[in-house]
């Protein structure tokens, strides 16, 4: 099982992830052609201007309305992407297989950032329960997506700390990581891919056509 999870499963996950992203991207470009307004209105200048504002914490009005949500959201997304890439154990595996190497996080930092991701996920969960406007629009799929995103971090942390049986935990961790990667292109986690485009389109319409900012 360990051999499958650390070998073929990783390949399958990455192929599905990359293939799925390419598929979604090509489909997006095609259906954008059918949606007659997109290409004519899309503007690099205004699209990037909007994107930049929405990528800087507190640069938009809505981000300043809820400081805690903004901080947690940024921390969650940053760590979600950076921790797996710069984790010593991950880099060591890639380096062992392919020889490629890059900088790594210290174990202590990785631990804390992982805890941060898990706490942020708890925050999102509590937010879903507590705020009526979020609870009203919450589907079971929202819990599932949150679980898919948080699971690799929870299980990775548990494996690293050698809680329960190490080998089982590592296998569960690898499976949960693979599930997350494969889920990204085909669930609403695809906002990872679509966000720059939806934001850039809105920025273009607001900037180039309506002559105002959209933040």
């Amino acid at each position: 099982m360990y051999n499958f999870a650390s070998g073929p499963l990783v390949w399958i996950a990455f192929i599905v992830f990359v293939g799925g992203m390419v598929y979604q991207f090509v489909t997006l470009l095609r259906s954008a052609k059918k949606d007659k307004v997109i290409y004519p209105y899309m503007s690099a200048k205004y699209g990037l201007r909007s994107l930049l504002h929405w990528l800087i914490p507190f640069a938009t009005t809505n981000m300043r309305l809820r400081y805690e949500t903004t901080i947690v959201t940024f921390a969650f997304h940053l760590c979600l992407i950076l921790v797996p890439i710069f984790l010593t154990a991950h880099v060591a595996m890639v380096s062992f297989g392919w020889g490629a190497k890059w900088g790594t996080l210290s174990d202590g930092a990785a631990d804390w950032l992982t805890i941060l991701v898990v706490l942020a996920a708890v925050f999102f969960l509590v937010r879903r329960w507590m705020l009526p406007e979020v609870r009203f629009v919450t589907n079971p799929s929202d819990y599932l997506l949150l679980a898919i995103a948080a699971a690799p971090f929870i299980t990775g942390f548990m494996a690293h700390k050698q809680w329960f049986d190490y080998e089982t935990m590592v296998v569960i961790h690898m499976i949960s990581g693979a599930v997350m990667l494969m889920a990204i292109p085909f669930t609403r986690l695809s906002h990872m891919l679509f966000f720059p485009f939806t934001r850039a389109y809105m920025g273009s319409e607001f900037g180039a056509v309506r002559h105002v900012k959209d933040w």
Binding site: L28, T69, D142, S190
Partner: peptide, 22 residues
Amino acid sequence: ETAARFRVYMNTCVHCGLCSDA
């Protein structure tokens, strides 16, 4: 009558409710 925008908006909304205060 709908294409990219409708489809992508459906697949991108994370049901966060942050539009409410607008």
